[in-house]
Write a protein that binds this DNA or RNA. Structure first.
Lengths: 140, 140
DNA sequence: ATAAAAGTTCAAGTCAACTTGAAGTCAAGT
DNA sequence: ACTTGACTTCAAGTTGACTTGAACTTTTAT
């Protein structure tokens, strides 16, 4: 397939496909002249990338999941990501419930509505920091 | 409370709190000299902001949810956001299942494992584009 | 009274993830 | 042979969400 077909089917613009290839997230299988050729299995990969991005993983994290760095490392990594997703699913569920309630609640301000606050508080467990921004500069 | 206490309790750095105040997402209740004073209810608000950010909403979207623009507009908006979350929850669940399977699967490449692919494909429904990047420039 | 600590403003810098623009290369149809 | 349009590279620009730095003002401790 050529790049425009992949773009059409996957929903990613061609510029993004080139960008992803440069980053090593996808591969083209060859060229016709200058033009890239893609094997159709790139579509699965792109779908997974889209899913991962939607789940809040960075491109770097996603490529880590793709490439098994060691025999055991990767297995543990995948399970850790799965647990991360479980936590996030809980949060999203709490927020969704909060929104649904807020939409039918006639309290003047949601922050004064005990039910709304209770719905949100469920999510507050096991949450200390923003997930994406940890930098781990313990050692200067 | 002063800004460092809010920072400590909420987990957001002081710089972020100032930034959020400037953006109108939170308010300080007064000053002592130059220094901001916060009412403790800002903590609820911050928790909700954190939840919203984690769910992938932009700061602009979050502030829209806070401020009732009209009598009915807001209600519909909240329900729409809740539906968006429902879709995302489905995706995350599919991805989580995919990861858990991948961690125990001994196929050489996950893209060749039919179970993995099937798990992911569940999520592919009702997904055309990335949620965050729509720009709607239909009219040039 | 004085110096350090903590807070302030405002402009500029950073980072990830793309997108856009300019200039060039090909491949195909007429 | 030639034009057109799809594709290419590479550098630079954009956006959202913050962070950092420099210069300044209080508050608090000694």
């Amino acid at each position: 397939m050529d790049i425009t077909e992949v773009a059409k089917v996957s929903g990613f613009p061609a510029s993004t496909l080139r960008f992803y290839e440069e980053k090593g997230l996808i591969q083209s299988t060859g060229r016709v002249g200058l033009r890239r050729l893609f094997n159709s299995d790139v579509l699965e990969r792109l779908a997974l990338i889209g899913l991962g991005r939607g789940a809040g993983f960075s491109l770097d994290e996603i490529s880590e999941m793709f490439t098994p760095e060691g025999p055991e490392i990767n297995r543990a990594l995948l399970l850790a990501k799965a647990d991360e997703l479980d936590r996030k699913i809980k949060e999203l569920t709490a927020m969704r419930n909060g929104l649904r309630h807020a939409a039918v609640c006639n309290a003047p301000n949601h922050f004064e509505c005990p039910k709304f606050l209770r719905l949100l508080r469920v999510a507050g467990k096991n949450r200390f920091r923003q997930p994406s921004k940890l930098k781990e500069n313990k050692f200067k």
